Computed example of a mutant assay.
Amino acid sequence: MVLGGFLAPVTLIFSLPGTPAATAALLLNFEAVATTLIAATIFREWVSRRVWIALGFITTACILLTWEPTGSLGLSLSALGILLTCVFWAIDNNLGQRLSAKDPLLVISIKGIGAGVITLILVLVTGEQFPDPSTIAAAMIVGFLCYGGLTSILFLLALRGIGAARAGSLLAISPFFGVIFSLLLFAELPAGAFYIALPIMALGAWLLVSEKHSHPHRHPAIVHEHRHRHDDLHHDHAHTADDPPLTSTGEHSHMHAHDEIVHEHPHQPDIHHRHSHR
């Protein structure tokens, strides 16, 4: 609520005016780097050598985009603000992954309402003026579709299914759409370093999203509850009359048991694949 819903967007809003739109869009790829670093070092998600190489490319591109000879210490403070935004969102992603087995609509509703109240208090304290009703309505539509509503629910489901590091990696595709829209909407062209950073960033993003991972692994016996389907390899359990029926999407949630099993198939560090690696 505080990191992802309040600190990150407020920091981003103050950082955007000093950064060209296309550059800002590319810098948001640092969220994938920060998310993966936290997931690997603190929460012990396994990350392959290919991913580390990809993160190196993206970080190099971010350094190029942050460099500004006339800025403080040769760096753009606005660009650094966008990188700090990515760090806030990266922490939010990893904490959200711990809640991903819960009802996503409930989690996002609580997070959104709480962050909205905190932001509203900041607005009132600082004496900011409210925009006109049409601007508020447009902002709410964009927010629901692209930031605090539908997107957040889908991302929470992705955190559950593939883990924070991989979800953050796939998110690395979105800034390239931001670059395309920025070039269509704004006459402002990015600086020269942008054209060097763009192919480096694209190579890093491709390495991230094209990663494959498969090896023999063991699932210990466990009893837990979360929303699940029955068309995968891990949910072939029997049901009782007390279990809820399947919804129209083929899912339901109830307490269920997993027997110990050893097998091999392509997988990601979802809630059923938190095993260690050699």
Score class of each variant (00 low, 15 high):
Gly4Ser: 10
Gly5Phe: 05
Leu7Ser: 04
Leu7Ala: 14
Ala8Ser: 15
Val10Cys: 09
Val10Leu: 13
Val10His: 05
Thr11Pro: 02
Thr11Cys: 14
Thr11Leu: 13
Leu12His: 03
Leu12Val: 00
Phe14Leu: 13
Phe14Tyr: 13
Ser15Leu: 07
Ser15Pro: 06
Ser15Cys: 12
Gly18Tyr: 03
Thr19His: 00
Thr19Asp: 02
Thr19Leu: 11
Thr19Trp: 01
Pro20Glu: 06
Ala22Met: 01
Ala22Lys: 03
Thr23Trp: 02
Ala24Met: 13
Ala24His: 08
Ala25Ile: 05
Ala25Val: 00
Ala25Tyr: 02
Leu26Asp: 01
Leu26Ser: 04
Leu27Phe: 02
Asn29Thr: 03
Asn29Pro: 06
Phe30Thr: 09
Phe30Lys: 03
Glu31Gln: 15
Glu31Thr: 11
Ala32Gln: 01
Ala32Asp: 00
Val33Cys: 08
Val33Ile: 06
Val33Phe: 04
Ala34Gln: 06
Thr35Leu: 12
Thr36Asp: 13
Thr36Phe: 06
Thr36Glu: 09
Leu37Met: 12
Leu37Ser: 06
Ile38Asn: 07
Ile38Pro: 06
Ala39Leu: 08
Thr41Ile: 12
Thr41Cys: 11
Ile42Cys: 10
Phe43Ile: 05
Phe43Pro: 04
Phe43Asn: 06
Phe43Leu: 12
Arg44Leu: 12
Glu45Phe: 03
Val47Asp: 10
Ser48Leu: 12
Ser48Phe: 08
Arg49Val: 14
Arg50Leu: 11
Arg50Ala: 11
Val51Leu: 07
Val51Trp: 00
Trp52Asn: 08
Trp52Tyr: 12
Trp52Thr: 04
Ile53Cys: 12
Ile53Ser: 15
Ile53Leu: 15
Leu55Arg: 00
Gly56Asp: 08
Gly56Thr: 03
Phe57Ala: 11
Phe57Trp: 09
Phe57Cys: 15
Ile58Cys: 03
Thr59Leu: 15
Thr59Cys: 12
Thr59Val: 05
Thr60Asp: 09
Ala61His: 02
Cys62Met: 13
Leu64Phe: 13
Leu64Gly: 03
Leu65Arg: 04
Leu65Trp: 03
Thr66Glu: 01
Thr66Leu: 03
Trp67Val: 11
Glu68Thr: 07
Glu68Asn: 14
Glu68Phe: 07
Pro69Ile: 05
Pro69Lys: 15
Thr70Asn: 15
Thr70Ile: 11
Gly71Cys: 13
Gly71Pro: 10
Ser72Trp: 14
Ser72Glu: 07
Ser72Cys: 09
Leu73Cys: 14
Leu73Arg: 12
Leu73Ala: 12
Gly74Trp: 05
Gly74Val: 02
Leu75Pro: 07
Leu75Gln: 08
Leu75Phe: 14
Ser76Lys: 02
Leu77His: 11
Ala79Phe: 03
Ala79Leu: 07
Gly81Leu: 05
Gly81Trp: 01
Leu83Met: 15
Leu84Trp: 02
Cys86Asp: 05
Cys86Ser: 13
